[in-house]
């Protein structure tokens, strides 16, 4: 509670995310919201009591689709972050801990991923493996690997120089003991911050891919795809593109604020470093 008062922005962010999560995972169980039910008598309606966000070109309820879109968006982002973390963190750990040729080889591979802006990389990948939710998830996940690898490596390198890691070796601890029991537990906080920030980047990237028409294929509801279609009806139904975009934006802002507050709190505690954001989407 005291933390919430001290960081009102992050508290608001958490509250908003809680609403989105509740709405997307619990509401469909209680409320009669069907994102796919078409109603050709009511296409491109403005917001009303029956349809709070209005209806789309096929007469589907936009709010229902936003809620369903949240589910796909959040699960895709979570999966992507999981992939990125599970690959990126070990790469950074090994590269930073052992250095030498392992470091050179691993980081050169990471450089290749960074040689293109993330969105282009994801697009090229999807062009090869075809459009699907899994494809979007994998593509977004792979673009997140360099972030995790670099943050982990930087953290491990900094820790590696500290005497308490050397002390473990002097005590006779094995390499795996000092890597997993000493270095990694001390490297968590920036990785945690990176998880939050990368989730927001992943949501943004997934939406951008859908907006470009290479994300999750329709008719599955997706925020980016709704913006893509809504953009065609700017004159007829301006709220069509605006409202889903607003929810998307607020979600990203919430995560970003939480991530940065977390970074500050952890930094005050033990001096972690905030991840720098990379490419635009």
């Amino acid at each position: 509670m005291r933390l919430a008062l001290k960081h009102p922005g992050a508290a608001l962010g958490i509250a908003f995310l809680a609403v989105v999560l509740l709405a997307s995972f619990v509401a469909p169980l209680i409320l009669p919201l069907d994102p796919l039910a078409q109603d050709f008598t009511a296409t491109l309606d403005p917001p009303s009591a029956a349809h709070w966000f209005g209806t789309d070109e096929l007469g589907r309820d936009i709010l229902a689709r936003v809620i369903a879109g949240a589910r796909t968006s959040l699960t895709t982002a979570a999966g992507a972050v999981l992939i990125a973390g599970c690959i990126g963190v070990p790469i950074g750990l090994v590269a930073g801990f052992f250095g030498g040729w392992r470091d050179a080889v691993l980081m050169r591979l990471v450089d290749v991923l960074l040689a293109l802006p993330g969105i282009l990389f994801a697009m090229a990948l999807i062009a090869v493996i075809g459009r699907s939710q899994m494809a979007a998830l994998v593509a977004v996940g792979i673009t997140g690997i360099p972030g995790f690898a670099r943050i982990t490596r930087a953290q491990v390198l900094a820790l590696r120089r500290l005497d308490f890691v050397l002390a473990v070796e002097a005590m006779g601890g094995s390499a795996s003991y000092s890597m997993f029991r000493t270095v990694l537990p001390n490297a968590w906080s920036p990785i945690l911050v990176q998880v939050v920030i990368l989730t927001s980047v992943a949501i943004l990237l997934e939406a951008a891919l859908a907006f470009l028409g290479v994300g999750i294929p329709p008719p599955a509801p997706s925020w980016g795809d709704m913006l893509r279609t809504g953009k065609q009806y700017l004159y007829e139904a301006p709220t069509y593109a605006v409202l889903p975009g607003l929810v998307l934006t607020l979600t990203i802002l919430s995560l970003d604020t939480i991530g940065r507050t977390l970074a500050r709190v952890l930094e005050d505690r033990q001096g972690a470093h905030l991840a720098t954001l990379d490419e635009p989407a």
Binding site: D163, F164, L166, A167, G172, T182, N186
Partner: peptide
């Protein structure tokens, strides 16, 4: 490193910087 374990029971190191030589967690 594995062989040195035995030796390290008899030879230990004390570091200069007491702030950096203890695992903070």
């Amino acid at each position: 490193r594995a062989e040195l374990r035995r030796i390290r029971r008899q030879m230990q190191y004390v570091f200069q910087d007491p702030f950096a030589s203890l695992n903070p967690i």
